[in-house]
Amino acid sequence: MTFKAIINGKTLKGETTTEAVDAATAEKVFKQYFNDNGLDGEWTYDDATKTFTVTE
């Protein structure tokens, strides 16, 4: 399945996608990506659209 992340950061904005077997796996991938890029913020997840949003 394809999962999307919308990034609303102070220094980084945009979208990225990942292929994962479930939402928990996708969340781990996205959180690692955000940690690697120095992002920290509020997380939400919309199961209907398979979209994570992080707002810094």
Rank of each mutant, 00 (worst) to 15 (best):
M1I: 14
M1N: 11
M1E: 10
M1W: 13
T2A: 07
T2E: 12
T2S: 09
F3S: 04
F3A: 06
F3V: 05
F3G: 06
F3Q: 04
K4L: 08
A5G: 03
I6R: 04
I6H: 03
I6S: 03
I7N: 01
I7S: 04
N8S: 09
N8E: 07
N8P: 03
N8K: 12
G9P: 02
G9R: 05
G9V: 13
K10H: 12
T11K: 11
T11F: 13
T11N: 13
T11M: 08
L12T: 07
L12P: 07
L12E: 11
L12K: 10
K13E: 06
G14C: 15
G14M: 15
G14V: 14
E15N: 06
E15S: 09
E15A: 08
T16V: 15
T16Y: 15
T18D: 02
T18R: 04
T18A: 06
E19I: 15
E19H: 13
A20I: 03
A20K: 02
A20N: 02
V21T: 11
V21Y: 08
V21A: 08
V21M: 11
V21E: 09
V21I: 12
A23L: 05
A23H: 07
A23M: 09
A23K: 11
A24V: 11
A24Q: 10
A24G: 06
A24K: 11
T25K: 04
T25C: 07
T25Q: 12
T25W: 05
A26I: 01
A26T: 00
A26Q: 00
A26S: 02
A26E: 00
A26N: 00
E27Q: 10
V29F: 14
V29P: 00
V29D: 03
F30L: 08
F30I: 02
K31P: 00
K31I: 07
K31R: 14
K31G: 02
Q32I: 08
Q32M: 09
Q32G: 05
Q32V: 09
Q32F: 03
Y33G: 01
Y33F: 13
F34D: 00
F34K: 01
N35V: 13
N35I: 13
N35A: 14
N35G: 12
N35W: 14
N35Y: 14
D36K: 09
D36G: 06
D36S: 10
N37M: 15
N37P: 04
N37W: 15
G38K: 07
G38T: 04
L39F: 14
L39D: 03
L39M: 11
L39I: 14
L39P: 02
D40V: 14
D40P: 03
D40H: 13
G41A: 09
E42G: 07
E42A: 08
E42Q: 11
W43Y: 04
W43D: 00
T44G: 04
T44V: 10
Y45K: 01
Y45P: 01
Y45Q: 00
D47H: 11
D47L: 06
D47T: 05
D47Q: 09
D47P: 13
D47A: 12
T49L: 05
T49A: 05
K50P: 00
K50R: 14
T51Y: 02
T51D: 00
F52Y: 04
F52C: 01
T53Q: 05
T53K: 04
T53V: 08
V54E: 02
V54G: 02
V54I: 14
T55L: 06
E56H: 06
E56Q: 11
E56Y: 10
